[in-house]
Design a protein around this nucleic acid. Structure first.
Length: 311
DNA sequence: AAATGTTTACGAGCAC
DNA sequence: GTGCTCGTAAACATTT
């Protein structure tokens, strides 16, 4: 095994899936969203392995972006011309990686049909639906009431799903990998303000009134774009050595991959904190047309897929 | 034309 | 064995 810090690492394929790599890139960005080209760039910058065979892996990566519901496509602002859209992480994909490890997903993130419908019909409310879930959706009393108290803080999955401050943070959890100061993310409230700002869309009066009536504290759709400092201290696999030892509980963790084993006692991953939340089009790319995937009965909308007719 | 995005298909590997 | 994730290839559509 090559030792961390040695160049011999760089020629080898990183132990991360394309989904992981993409998530890293997005999380590492200030605005929690990146155009495709920047995702490529991030990966190539940090993982020399991917400086070759670009056609191959970039095709795979694009496939992953489109195919996986955990990635959402955000249109460019009118004043930001360029090719392609921005890509962000879906707010609900926080527990996608087991124990926060980016080595392998244990759960495939997939939107429910209802969420697709909601996304289609009312993206903004869909967004708030997710914000509500962020604040209490995974607990016993979800919904606006639960959301009111916490929404202003835009708490992340790290503090919600896990439910334990100082919960386990896997060495390959995203905050460790990208070396983020997650305290900043926890309280910075990136999602809505960031993306709204990015899009440059004025907050519709309708939305304002809805927000103000339902969640008075959220009326602050301001320009609080948080520029979060990002550590540049990357180990060969992009693992921040600093981040590896940044542990809320004060524990230190080894800078080595840890075998992933199901640990029911552990909460969902704390990894994807500070998740982005799309405003105008908070839909995964696949939301418009449901995907095939491994469940052909799911998400074909009202259309009857030929495959279903044959089966 | 090139980049970007979508979809389908197949096989490998892993966990249960 | 089954079902899942993942990687890859490829065809095709859309956008710049």
């Amino acid at each position: 095994m090559p030792r961390p810090g040695k160049n011999s690492y760089s020629d080898q394929k990183p132990p991360y899936s394309y989904i992981s790599l993409t998530a890293m890139a997005i999380q590492n960005s200030t605005e929690k969203m990146l155009p495709l080209s920047d995702i490529y760039k991030f990966i190539m910058d940090r993982f020399p392995y991917y400086r070759e065979n670009t056609q191959r892996w970039q095709n795979s990566l694009r496939h992953n972006l489109s195919f996986n519901d955990c990635f959402i496509k955000i249109p460019r602002r009118p004043d930001q011309p360029g090719k392609g859209s921005f890509w962000a992480l879906h707010p609900d994909c926080g527990d996608m990686f087991e124990n926060g490890s980016f080595l392998r997903r244990r759960k495939r993130f997939k939107l429910l049909r209802a969420e697709h419908m909601a996304c289609k019909s009312s993206p903004m409310m869909h967004y708030f639906h997710h914000q509500g879930k962020l604040s209490g959706g995974h607990h016993e009393h979800p919904g606006p009431a639960a959301a009111v108290g916490r929404l202003p803080h835009f708490q992340s999955y790290g503090s919600i799903n896990c439910g334990q401050s100082g919960g386990f943070k896997h060495p390959f959890a995203i905050e460790n990998i990208i070396g983020r100061d997650y305290k900043g993310v926890m309280t910075s409230g990136l999602p809505i303000t960031s993306v709204m700002h990015h899009l440059g869309y004025p907050v519709p009066a309708q939305l304002s009134s809805v927000v103000n009536s339902m969640w008075p504290h959220v009326g602050m759709l301001s320009d609080s774009m948080s520029a979060i400092p990002v550590s540049s201290e990357y180990a060969p696999f992009g693992v921040s050595m600093k981040g590896l030892y940044h542990h809320a509980s004060g524990q230190t963790l080894p800078a080595v991959p840890v075998p992933i084993k199901p640990t029911p006692s552990m909460g969902p991953m704390p990894g994807l904190s500070g998740l982005p939340s799309g405003p105008a089009q908070l839909c995964s790319s696949s939301s418009m047309l449901e995907k095939n995937g491994s469940d052909p009965l799911e998400g074909k909308g009202n259309a009857i897929h030929p495959a279903l007719l044959l089966s």
